[in-house]
Design a protein around this nucleic acid. Structure first.
Length: 272
DNA sequence: CGAACCTCCTGCGGGC
DNA sequence: TGCCCGCAGGAGGTTC
């Protein structure tokens, strides 16, 4: 479910509940996620959270003493902070009780997510975080950079920007949205995207992600922020999920096809 | 190295 | 109403 804006929304939501708080107990009801829930999770009892960072779609909650709790939400994961006594819902798999009387709950119907504990706060230390490309909202992600990478790619540009070794955090929704804003068709061969259009595309990716974060992410079916509110970016989607509906700019029916196994949307008039 | 394909899992909406 | 099929926001692994 979550792309970068949803993960960032989650981070902002849980941060005030975690920062400075200690873990009193850990409950794992169901540990068979994409990877087994790290047994080291129990070792966080008694530890105090310093803060919560994000790298790619990983949430990194640092505790005093140099360990980091890594949480990936997969396709359907979410976090919320509830009173400890609150009833456990179906698919609530893990709970971390805090010294505030509240509990951080991990919920994930499809169980594609991950909960890991890493020994050092250095994000590059974990093997899952190596080989990741730049953060899309950092300066390092520029038109020059994208052009240099894309030069050797024969795949469609959409698949290139969804490749986490190229740039992290651009998932299926925002890939279609950014390409619409940049006026580039998703099927365009990456290698044929000019330097000028790479500039445009990078600008569009930054813009659409920043806007989505400011709206609390996109709720399609089930994404809820950690406070239980939906994200409001859905109303601003120009093409994603709008196959056959009129383009909001020119009225042309939005096209849809599968690219690399993922549904892809574009306007053949506004994008070329 | 790049690219195509497969896989994990549950829920839901559409079609019949 | 009920059942079956296909599809879903991710991403690591394998194979060529």
């Amino acid at each position: 479910m979550p792309e970068l804006p949803e993960v960032e929304t989650t981070r902002l939501g849980v941060l005030p509940h975690l920062r400075g708080r200690a873990v009193l107990s850990v409950i794992v009801r169901r540990g068979d996620l994409r990877l087994p829930v790290d047994p080291g999770l129990e070792g966080l009892v008694g530890c105090r959270f310093i803060g919560v960072r994000r790298r790619s779609k990983y949430l990194l909650a640092d505790v005093e003493g140099g360990r980091t709790l890594l949480i990936h939400l997969g396709m359907s994961g979410s976090l919320r902070v509830v009173p400890e006594a609150d009833e456990w819902r179906k698919h609530d798999h893990v709970g971390l009780s805090l010294d505030t009387g509240r509990q951080l709950r991990y919920h994930d119907p499809r169980r594609f997510g991950m909960i890991l504990v890493h020994e050092t706060a250095m994000e590059v230390g974990h093997s899952l975080l190596q080989h990741l490309g730049p953060e899309p909202l950092e300066e390092e992600f520029s038109g020059v950079y994208l052009h240099s990478v894309v030069r050797r790619r024969r795949c469609p540009i959409k698949q290139a920007i969804m490749d986490a070794t190229v740039v992290v955090g651009v998932g299926n929704i925002y890939a279609s949205e950014a390409l619409f804003r940049a006026g580039i068709r998703p099927v365009t061969q990456a290698v044929r995207v000019s330097r000028a259009r790479c500039d445009l595309l990078v600008g569009s990716i930054k813009e659409v992600l920043a806007e989505a974060i400011s709206q609390g992410g996109t709720t399609l079916r089930d994404f809820l922020r950690s406070d239980g509110e939906p994200g409001y970016f859905r109303q601003r989607l120009m093409v994603y999920g709008r196959g056959g509906e009129p383009c909001r700019v020119c009225g042309e029916p939005i096209r849809q096809r599968v690219l690399g196994g993922r549904s892809t949307f574009w306007c053949r008039v506004c994008q070329s």
